[in-house]
């Protein structure tokens, strides 16, 4: 009973700001509303007993991705409080795409057996660590390699934009520097 109440509160914390993200006319407000959604998702993970994933969610998404998103959004210079006017040419492809994604998600969600739902929190870090170093060593190293490549790529991009400083760029380099 109380568990359900906690779940409902966490779900509301996730969904209400998410709706705000989509419908807010102010893009910076949308970015900041994302904070609550990410926080709510972390809460849901913690509720399901996945403490490690919950903390990682906070660390990676709130501490990293969200700040990056905010930086990007702040540099886009959308007039504050002005609602953008989009025609049918935008609404139709967006609608079709979102419906397709929704259908796919719905089919996946309903076809998977989700187990018990709320479980008591058990320490998971040690187990995750052991699995990373034994059973899942290849995926783990592979992801590390992908991240390393991405990092080197980003460093090279910044360097190139520094050399050609006189020519105006598309603005992507500003975000990263």
């Amino acid at each position: 009973m109380t568990g359900d109440l906690v779940f409902v509160l966490l779900a509301l914390l996730t969904i209400v700001p998410a709706v705000w993200v989509v419908f807010s006319p102010n893009i910076v407000h949308a970015g900041f509303a994302l904070l609550f959604t990410l926080f709510g998702v972390a809460g849901l993970y913690a509720y399901m007993g996945a403490d490690y994933i919950a903390v990682t969610q906070l660390m990676v998404y709130v501490g990293g991705v969200l700040v990056l998103v905010l930086f990007t959004v702040m540099m886009t210079r959308v007039p504050q409080g002005k609602r953008a006017n989009y025609g049918l040419d935008r609404f139709v492809p967006a609608g079709v795409l979102s419906l397709a994604v929704f259908g796919l998600l719905y089919k996946t969600i309903t076809s998977v057996d989700w187990g018990a739902g709320h479980t008591e929190s058990v320490p998971t870090v040690a187990e995750i660590g052991t699995n990373f170093m034994t059973n899942y060593i290849f995926p783990f190293e592979y992801i590390s390699l992908v991240l390393l490549v991405a990092m080197i790529g980003a460093a090279i991009l910044i360097r190139e934009s520094k050399n050609t400083q006189d020519e105006p760029e598309n603005g992507d380099s500003e975000v990263q520097s």
Binding site: L35, Y52, M59, T124
Partner: peptide, 17 residues
Amino acid sequence: LDLGLMYIFAVSSMAVV
């Protein structure tokens, strides 16, 4: 918390936002 130290670093990143 079992993740005490990691939790501390995770929540203090909220201050950045």
